[in-house]
Design a protein around this nucleic acid. Sequence first.
DNA 1: CCGATAAGTTAACGGCGTTATCTTCAGCCT
DNA 2: AGGCTGAAGATAACGCCGTTAACTTATCGG
Lengths: 226, 226
Amino acid sequence: MNRAAPATAGRTRARKGEGELLHSEILDAAERLLIETGSEEAVSIRRIAEAVGVTPPSIYLHFADKDELLLAVCERQFGELHRVMEEAVEGVDDPVEAVYRRGKAYVRFGLDHPEQYRILFMRAADHTMDAPDEARVRDASAFHHFVDAVASAIDSGALPKGSDPVVVALELWSVVHGITSLLISKPMFDWPDADALTDHLLTAACAGLMATPPFSAPPTRRRSRR
Amino acid sequence: MNRAAPATAGRTRARKGEGELLHSEILDAAERLLIETGSEEAVSIRRIAEAVGVTPPSIYLHFADKDELLLAVCERQFGELHRVMEEAVEGVDDPVEAVYRRGKAYVRFGLDHPEQYRILFMRAADHTMDAPDEARVRDASAFHHFVDAVASAIDSGALPKGSDPVVVALELWSVVHGITSLLISKPMFDWPDADALTDHLLTAACAGLMATPPFSAPPTRRRSRR
DNA sequence: CCGATAAGTTAACGGCGTTATCTTCAGCCT
DNA sequence: AGGCTGAAGATAACGCCGTTAACTTATCGG
């Protein structure tokens, strides 16, 4: 509200020491707009610029385009999701309980920040594909933590010994992601309590995996995708 | 390509008998654009109008706005999904096998039509909330079929007797939806074969549900959402 | 002191969804 | 037959969007 006042022309800020300041200010504004409006479309470059107190083209001095900006917001949210999940397992020794807690924290995060969750996990593949590898690494790293947790659970005997932790992690992730995603996008049904539902499903999933021969990819072609 | 030529002004078609013709032509074009470009943003009113050979405002004689148009496309896709699922269980007597087939058909549909799937299941709640009830009814009806299938499986003893078919259906739906959604939006990981994965997960889920006491909502408040 | 560079600015382009207004014709009523 | 009505188009325009080009100015290294 204060900047961009001079009207004469040229600059207002950046006494050269500020450097990357605007960069994070833009991210803040974008994130705030996203949360306040709850809609990705409402987060426009022009609105963000206005919120920061700067003209739209200035944004492009810090981000290549809108996609990169939103991706950067995603990264932040990803960090936050990672944080709440780690926080949820703090001081928890039982590896199975840890997996449960992670799952519930994940679902809760999704329900608390639906729009961010949508951006994180419901975006077109293209957007994440040709983006800088950072995003993928970030994803992979968060996922890796979960794989570790699953591996511990396997070691503890709560999940079948012979199974591939990566596959099991993918499957459990599918389960939590499925609930989260449906709860977010289909509030029309009379969903039971999310936490209890997650608990029940994870319990069932773990029990089911125990009672089922470990997954092995069929001999013919892996990666069928199209 | 042929219409809109007269340049003089006024009309070109609609000799009064054609009535709802343009309506479905628009839907066809929208659907085609969606499939060809594989991106919701690329499907603009103006492009659709051009494809049909008509000016943009004409679209609004048949649809209130772009959302309603896309929703109508969704309805069609929903019908298609419903069709492939029914087709998948044709002649299948074993209720458990029927549930599996439905699940696999669902996942395959999602992978074959990712953009449509995204619109169907990854849209904001708002869009489906204030839309005409049709969409919800349609959703509910497709879901109802699945609930019936689950109920049969419960009757057959493949799923625990005391359990609520609706809850079980929701849970199984979560599972398939989770895989589908992750496979679509996170192709970065080395996913195993989708069909085999679905099979394994559904098997595990059913086995798990059998080995777990049926879900019962906690006594305190149902519908926690936020 | 003087260029170079960084970080803003203004102006503009093309595309979008949408609306207001006008035109033309098919079909009905008399 | 002749005129009215309403449906189904067209044209022109508004305001928003992402993005780019060209300009301006302050800061700093030499």
